[in-house]
Simulated scan of single mutants.
Amino acid sequence: MGSELAELKEQVNLLRKEVSRISDEAEVRKVHFKYGYYLDKCLYNEVVDMYADHPDTYVEFLGSRYRGKEGVKRLYNGRFQQTFVNGRNGPVRGFLLDHIMMQDIVDVDPSGTHAWCRMRALMQAGTHQSVRETHPRGHVQWWEGGLYENEYIKENGVWKLFRYRYFPFWHAEHEKGWSLTKENYVPWPTKTYPEDPLGPDEIIEQKMLWPDTRVVPFHYPHPVTGQRTKDDDLRAPHYGKDASTSEAPLTLALPEGQTRPGEGKTWTSEGSVRVLPDLVQNA
């Protein structure tokens, strides 16, 4: 009887851990979906509040990095809010900015305090012809496809955005499609804060826009082989050319001054390694 009771206790403990993991994964997924709904309607105050207060918080976007909560505010309450809605918190008539979030892959570490998510975004954006004379963008419409490789942390029991990395893959105008999209469709930032009052904290070498088709690294290993994808296979040379002739592979490496205390460790769940050892934060 004693051994059976001990076995039951162990099973209950394992089930409790699994339920906690599944619950955390669901919460992280909801955090990102809620972020998308706020972003759609230019509710930038609500967006900023979803970011962690941790000093290592950052947003990596369009060849630049906005660091800390102040950098996050500068991007959303500064660049986006001023450009799209003239400084108000909320939408303006005739401006469309819809983000469809999908194909999410969420992994939570054993501590239940750190998570990763890879997710796609398909954006429809533009202005209605009726506001062409009053909105600074005039009359425009475009598509955008991109990918997130984000990290999240639990602060005071609440899941928040932490290290946010968004890679816009392609842009396409409705009339011309994606094959005729001009290169550098969205200009890269060239000045940092405070020289640019709404600029990033740093300009980074990691830049990509269509027709660049490099692979954003996966936070997880292959689910069958357990191997990470080779760096050369993440590159995108011209047809028939060797990988060495193309731009360097993209990376999920941390910026200067940040570390991962759990780096080098692994944990398994459902019989496979969940996250690459070099990306483990806690274990």
Rank of each mutant, 00 (worst) to 15 (best):
S179I: 13
A115M: 11
I203W: 09
Y51D: 05
Q281D: 09
H32D: 06
A236S: 10
H174W: 14
A283C: 13
D278P: 08
N86K: 15
V47M: 01
R274N: 02
V216S: 03
R163P: 10
R21I: 10
S23V: 12
F162H: 15
S23P: 03
G262K: 07
D201M: 02
L14D: 13
S3W: 01
L276Y: 09
Q141R: 11
G126F: 06
R16K: 14
E149A: 14
P187C: 04
G78R: 02
Q258W: 08
E175P: 00
R93C: 04
K230T: 11
K30M: 10
V216N: 02
G264A: 06
W178N: 11
P211E: 06
D49T: 12
V273R: 01
Y148M: 03
G68H: 01
G68K: 01
G264W: 09
Y35E: 09
R163T: 06
L14W: 05
P197H: 00
F61L: 15
M101A: 08
A236D: 05
P237I: 04
V72G: 05
V12W: 03
G240R: 07
G264E: 11
V280F: 05
Q124K: 08
F218S: 14
S23L: 11
R74M: 03
P55M: 00
T83I: 02
Y76M: 13
P221D: 06
V31P: 01
E183N: 13
S130D: 15
Q11F: 10
E263W: 06
A172E: 06
P223A: 03
H222K: 07
P91W: 04
D232H: 13
M123N: 12
H139S: 09
G87T: 06
L75D: 12
V59W: 09
P261G: 00
E133D: 15
K207G: 08
K69R: 14
K230S: 12
P237D: 01
G145W: 10
E247K: 10
T245R: 02
V92P: 08
T259L: 10
G257D: 03
E144L: 12
E133C: 10
V215T: 08
T245E: 09
N150R: 11
L209R: 12
R29P: 00
Y76P: 05
I204C: 13
W170L: 14
T229F: 07
G145M: 09
L234T: 04
G68L: 00
L8Y: 14
P200A: 11
K34R: 12
A172Q: 06
N13I: 03
V12K: 00
K182C: 07
L97R: 10
F95G: 00
P223N: 06
V131Y: 07
R132D: 10
E270M: 02
R93A: 09
E270N: 11
V215P: 01
Q227R: 15
V273G: 01
Y58V: 04
G78I: 03
D278Q: 14
V273E: 10
E256V: 15
H219G: 07
T127H: 04
K241Q: 15
K34E: 15
R228T: 07
L276G: 08
Y38T: 07
H174G: 14
H128Q: 11
G271P: 08
G71L: 02
L5H: 08
